[in-house]
Amino acid sequence: MARLKDRGSEAGLREFLLEGAVAFRDMYGLASTGCWEALSQPVNLLVGREPFSFSRFELPPNHPLRRHGALHDRLTLTEGDELL
């Protein structure tokens, strides 16, 4: 039986953040010459499974940590999908 890679406690969070980043890039990326490249940076970090820093208000509405601290607090999703 194949073993699944441990994806950390926030397995679905990376996908949630990626969907938002792609939608934002697709909506505003063509506004000017450098917009697509600038808005692709978060997408590339998330797709590449690299650490990603974001604001607490970007958590899903039902995430338990959304109500702890201020909405502008910075959080980091590690390459192992752990939330710091």
Rank of each mutant, 00 (worst) to 15 (best):
L13C: 02
R7G: 03
L4Y: 13
L84I: 14
E15T: 11
L71I: 03
E58K: 14
E50K: 13
S40L: 05
L39C: 02
G80R: 15
P51D: 09
D6Q: 10
G48Y: 07
Y28P: 01
L77Y: 04
L18R: 04
L18P: 12
L71Q: 14
A31D: 13
L84N: 11
L13Y: 01
F52I: 03
D81T: 08
P51G: 02
D73K: 04
L39V: 06
V47S: 06
R49Y: 00
A31E: 07
E82I: 03
L84P: 12
E15V: 07
A11Y: 06
R56E: 11
L77F: 06
G20V: 00
G8R: 02
S9Q: 14
Y28T: 05
P60G: 02
P42I: 03
E58N: 09
M1A: 10
L84K: 10
P61Q: 03
K5T: 11
T33K: 12
D26Y: 06
D73H: 14
R66W: 00
V43P: 05
L75T: 09
N44R: 12
A2K: 01
E50L: 15
Q41E: 15
L45R: 09
A38T: 09
P51K: 01
V47R: 11
E58M: 13
L65H: 08
K5M: 10
A38P: 00
V47C: 08
L17K: 01
E19T: 11
V22P: 06
R56F: 05
T33P: 00
G69D: 09
D81M: 11
E50G: 08
P51N: 04
A11Q: 10
R56H: 13
A31K: 09
G12W: 00
G29I: 01
C35Q: 12
D81H: 10
A70V: 01
F24L: 05
G69L: 07
S55Y: 05
E58D: 09
T78F: 08
Q41R: 13
F52N: 03
A23H: 08
S40V: 02
P64F: 10
R3D: 10
F52Q: 06
E15I: 07
E37H: 14
F24E: 14
L59N: 05
P60T: 08
A23R: 14
G34Q: 13
A70N: 10
L39Y: 14
Y28H: 12
F54W: 03
